[in-house]
Design a protein around this nucleic acid. Structure first.
Lengths: 195, 195, 195, 195
DNA sequence: AATGAATGAGGATTCATTCAT
DNA sequence: GATGAATGAATCCTCATTCAT
């Protein structure tokens, strides 16, 4: 059974299994044995690769948040127009394969974990910083008080995610549009007010 | 030691202990023994009153969401002006004694629980319905497509809550203002667009 | 099944079970489950009383060394003559119910434990100090360099114990006499030499 | 990577690693992986050479006790005088490179092992027989009841070892002298008494 | 010969829940 | 009503041993 060079595949399989397992169970209370079985290996091997259950969860969380960032980067590459770029950022967070039930559910569980786990908290902070930085870059070109708009906008994104995780519906194509329209409204109001 | 007529006090003490314990631990993984000790009684008695740990959690969650609604009702009693009433609804959700670290943390844990627990899900749905109904009542008087605004607004409220739960800061007086300003922007945009 | 006031009996039963189990297995590698079963209770209850396996072992060790001291005290109460008292101290360490296979085997395992466990090391130190102090009190009256004799004598006692633990024989009535004669020889030589 | 004729070196490296590992950990609870890593090879290879962890331990124990005997033989080669030879036997057991913390600690762990492992018990018996035989050979020339003296003397040697293993001190030059002086006293008393 | 991937049994510990008192 | 003793299932993690490469 032992094969060499399996580490990357094994780790990827475990990360994926963690997300599926948590997404299905809708809680972080999943057992290492079940995760390992889902990933097609023994619990011992899972520990061999990650050291502890906690590290497995963190790796899965890093993966999820990493995918968010990747999508954003991909979206930004498409255009130079600030408005379009802002929309791209928002849409990236709501693409079907990111914004599905299992992922949002795992996402909420991980956010909950970050309340008490330092590594998880760091990951959240990094993700939030990146999102803020991306949003700010465009908002600076679009309105006089970008920080204020950014605050509302990122909270809104998280809120929509939260509601998606709680709801029973699958990917919702209108979610992105709701946020985009709100963004327009916030920018417009911000511009008017400062005049 | 046994006293009669203690039930209401005991139950209240337990509910409060659950919230404090969860708020401190930042997870639902708290033990019945600790909760009971915090409430000044034995774990056996806690079970006597609530039947199971799950029911204790649900009762605490009901309490938290109930307080939200109470504050909203109290706020609405102050005025008849739609704009002011809308602001009152929003402010009710961010009053200091509701919007503190412990409560928001417990709130997030409960939301997470509602992903997998039917009773908890029902409570969330009831709370969301009430909030929606309250917001809609005012929005209907303020803009042509109130449902759209309500959707964004309630997500925004949850998002601000979520970020509060994740952050380390205590009550943030600006949270309510951020949401109120966003509400104004959304209403304004909704009005303009539909013209 | 729950009864009140059982704690002392439970703890004593566990301590006794630890000694029997270790004495029989001839190693500290015994399971809490087996100890608990031998003591007539569940492993959970054993943990309830001692908190951890380590603490169970320490309690058992304390018990064994405590019995040594008790026997010495009892022996010393019999006479005032230094020579007789010295013999009493030695004999106390080799009484049948102390110097039997199970106890000596457990004793060796505990000594081994004291190499790496601070609590166990402290217990050994206390026991050795007491023994030294008792021996010195008499030796001071019997020879000019009591410290030297004490050093040899206490090492000899431990050595005899060690050999008893390794051997397969049960209580050896001659063990005490061997040590007593050696003590006489050491005292005599110490007296002569210093002249 | 595989080299031929490496077996003796590999085995020696493992034996040495076992002693170091046990001496440092102060317990037999060391893992094969750590031993193998310390010896510069994989755990699989360690098993290849010794078949099982138990056999590794036994080999290490055989090595330690073998060194004792070698030192004794070397010491005996120096002189023909019974008194000097007796002292040589004793001193051989307390030479610095034998009587150091790591070795005595491993020694105690192995003695403990011999309580439950037949192979280990055999090794101890062989070592004790050799020591007894060596001591007896000289004592027969020095006193009327050599067996009695031998019994006390060998127990004393083990006792001094035991205390060394428990203590924190390194090699103690006075240990040998303490035993030698005790030997003189025992021989003298034995001679007197029998007159 | 050599590696280290892989297994799976085993064990300490925790904790919701029950129940005798 | 009230206690906390008692149970035992559940779970993480470790590690000797095996085996494909």
């Amino acid at each position: 059974m032992p094969k060499v060079g399996m580490e990357p595949e094994r780790r990827a399989a475990l990360v994926s299994a963690v997300i599926d397992e948590i997404g299905e169970a809708r809680t972080l209370d999943v057992t290492v044995s079940k995760i390992a079985k889902r990933a097609g290996m023994s619990s011992g091997l899972a520990h061999h690769y990650f050291g502890s259950k906690e590290q497995m969860l963190i790796a899965a969380m890093r993966h999820i948040l990493g995918v968010f960032s990747q999508r954003v980067v991909a979206g930004l590459a498409q255009t130079q127009d600030p408005h379009d770029r802002l929309r791209a950022i928002i849409r990236a967070n709501f693409e079907d394969h990111v914004f599905d039930r299992r992922k949002t559910s795992a996402w909420l569980s991980f956010y909950s974990l970050s309340q008490r786990n330092d590594d998880a908290a760091t990951l959240v902070r990094i993700y939030q910083s990146r999102l803020r930085s991306n949003l700010m870059h465009e908002l600076r070109l679009l309105c006089p008080d970008p920080a204020r708009v950014e605050r509302a906008l990122s909270s809104l994104i998280d809120g929509v995610y939260l509601r998606a995780a709680l709801g029973n519906a699958g990917p919702d194509p209108s979610a992105a549009e709701t946020v985009i329209q709100a963004a327009d409204a916030l920018i417009h109001a911000n511009t008017q007010r400062s005049v």
